[in-house]
């Protein structure tokens, strides 16, 4: 994981240009931003809320909020960090609204490909076990781990998205991994 300060790259410069156009009321720029960022956002939201329809609705809400705040937005961090911050807040609201933890459907996960039946069965079992185990760890730990592993975010980015110190992020991720290993000891042994 990198610990460097935020240095804007070419992608970020393009995001900044598009945001300036969005702030001036350019709907085409907003559409381009949605095209650039929505697959990762929907992926994260689907992991958190379980349902693709809800994930799509929340992703739309993220971009509408982004559009509303465009005139006030300052490029102090990556635009994606800001988007994930909005998305994370919406996920927290969604959990509060439903007053239950997210559920996941374990359907159509197995891609047999080159594996034989035994291998496919094992992969299916493993994915089911991962889904169950992830439901048993605290939601903030799961979210931090999702940002790190699924979205390839740095600890600093996760800290900015979740508005907690970097040390807290590291602790959450360490605990998440430890608990997951413990819950999946049938598959990985007691290491």
């Amino acid at each position: 994981m990198t610990t460097e300060a935020y240095l804007p790259g070419e992608e970020d410069a393009e995001d900044k240009r598009l945001m300036e156009r969005v702030a001036q009321g350019d709907d085409d720029a907003l559409r381009l931003l949605v095209e650039r960022h929505h697959p990762r956002l929907v992926g994260y939201l689907k992991t958190e809320v379980g349902s693709l329809a809800t994930a799509e609705e929340l992703a739309m809400e993220v971009f509408i909020r982004l559009h509303r705040s465009a005139p006030r937005w300052r490029p102090e961090a990556k635009l994606s960090t800001y988007l994930f911050h909005i998305a994370h807040n919406l996920v927290l609201n969604e959990w509060r609204r439903k007053s239950r933890k997210p559920t996941h459907s374990i359907d159509a996960l197995i891609e047999t490909g080159d594996h034989d039946q035994e291998s496919a069965r094992r992969v299916g079992e493993l994915e089911e076990s991962f889904a169950r185990a992830l439901q048993q760890i605290p939601p903030v730990q799961r979210t931090a781990l999702t940002f790190l592993v699924q979205q390839d975010m740095t600890y600093e980015e996760i800290s900015a998205v979740m508005k907690v110190p970097v040390s807290t992020v590291k602790t959450w991720i360490f605990r998440a991994r430890t608990q997951l290993k413990d819950l999946l000891k049938d598959h990985y042994g007691t290491r």
Partner: peptide, 11 residues
């Protein structure tokens, strides 16, 4: 496996 989910027509 769900890191990116493109949704046609979302924009």
């Amino acid at each position: 496996r769900e890191s990116k989910i493109p949704v046609p027509g979302l924009s």
